[in-house]
Amino acid sequence: MSLASSSPGGPADADTFPAVCDHTHLFPGARPRVQGLPDPAAFAAEPRPVEVDLRFSDGVITNAELRTPEPGAVLLGVPAYTTAAGTPVDARTWLVREVSHVDDEVELRIGGLAVS
């Protein structure tokens, strides 16, 4: 297993939460699920900046940052990383077009790339 981060995050780091991804990379329409937030319903209603550990389907984990630069705007900043198959993925900032409360998780629906 290849790790882009040496810290697994989650409960050991109260300010970092796991975000499970069903794929080896993000793309428009991807839906990472943030786990372990103290009040997921409140977070979905009013997102705030948090650090997450993106956990991709191939076992790669990388740190990322959920940002709220202005009311109603949510961005996910992801540093460069390499998939388990060796494919490099450039650093990107994604627009999050929807934040919803699903069971005890917060689902992020990824939109397009943010324009810098």
Rank of each mutant, 00 (worst) to 15 (best):
2 S>G: 02
3 L>K: 12
4 A>Q: 15
4 A>H: 14
6 S>K: 12
8 P>C: 02
11 P>I: 14
11 P>V: 14
13 D>G: 00
14 A>P: 15
14 A>M: 12
14 A>G: 12
15 D>Q: 13
15 D>Y: 10
15 D>G: 10
17 F>W: 07
18 P>Y: 02
19 A>Q: 03
20 V>L: 14
20 V>P: 01
21 C>H: 04
22 D>Y: 01
25 H>W: 08
26 L>A: 03
32 P>Y: 11
33 R>K: 15
33 R>A: 14
34 V>E: 06
35 Q>F: 01
36 G>W: 07
38 P>T: 09
41 A>Y: 01
41 A>N: 02
42 A>N: 09
46 E>M: 07
47 P>V: 01
47 P>D: 05
49 P>N: 08
51 E>W: 07
54 L>P: 10
56 F>G: 10
57 S>D: 09
59 G>D: 03
59 G>H: 08
59 G>E: 04
59 G>T: 04
59 G>P: 11
62 T>C: 14
65 E>W: 08
67 R>I: 05
69 P>L: 04
69 P>Q: 07
70 E>Q: 14
70 E>L: 08
70 E>C: 05
71 P>G: 02
71 P>L: 02
71 P>S: 03
72 G>W: 06
73 A>L: 15
74 V>L: 05
76 L>M: 13
79 P>M: 04
81 Y>D: 03
82 T>W: 02
83 T>N: 03
87 T>I: 08
88 P>N: 10
88 P>F: 12
88 P>S: 09
88 P>Y: 11
89 V>T: 12
90 D>M: 07
91 A>H: 08
92 R>W: 07
93 T>R: 14
94 W>H: 11
94 W>D: 12
95 L>K: 13
97 R>T: 15
98 E>S: 10
99 V>E: 04
99 V>K: 07
100 S>M: 06
102 V>H: 05
102 V>W: 03
104 D>Y: 07
105 E>Y: 04
105 E>R: 11
105 E>V: 09
107 E>I: 00
107 E>K: 01
109 R>Q: 10
112 G>K: 08
112 G>A: 13
112 G>T: 11
114 A>M: 06
114 A>E: 14
115 V>E: 15
116 S>K: 03
